[in-house]
Amino acid sequence: MILLLFLTITFLQSGLDKITDWKGNIGWLKGHFAKTLFKNSVPLLLGIILVPEVFTGIISLFGIYGILSSGNTSFAFLGALVGCATLLMLLMGQRVAKDYDGARTIVIYLMPSIFLLFLLQN
Rank of each mutant, 00 (worst) to 15 (best):
M1C: 12
L4M: 07
F6K: 03
L7W: 03
I9E: 08
I9K: 04
I9G: 10
L12N: 01
G15M: 11
D17N: 13
D17T: 09
K23A: 09
G27K: 01
W28K: 14
K35P: 10
L37W: 15
N40R: 13
N40P: 02
S41R: 15
V42R: 00
P43N: 05
L44W: 06
L46M: 13
I49Y: 09
P52A: 09
E53Q: 12
E53T: 00
V54A: 01
I58T: 02
I59R: 00
I59Q: 02
L61S: 13
I67Q: 04
L68I: 14
L68M: 12
S70W: 04
S70R: 06
G71V: 10
N72H: 09
A76N: 06
F77R: 11
A80M: 06
V82Q: 00
V82T: 08
T86W: 05
L88K: 03
M89I: 10
M89A: 11
M89E: 09
M92V: 07
A97L: 04
D99Q: 06
D101A: 09
D101K: 13
A103F: 03
A103S: 13
R104Q: 09
I106V: 15
V107F: 05
M111E: 09
M111W: 12
S113Y: 03
S113E: 00
I114Q: 05
F118G: 15
L120E: 13
L120F: 02
N122R: 07
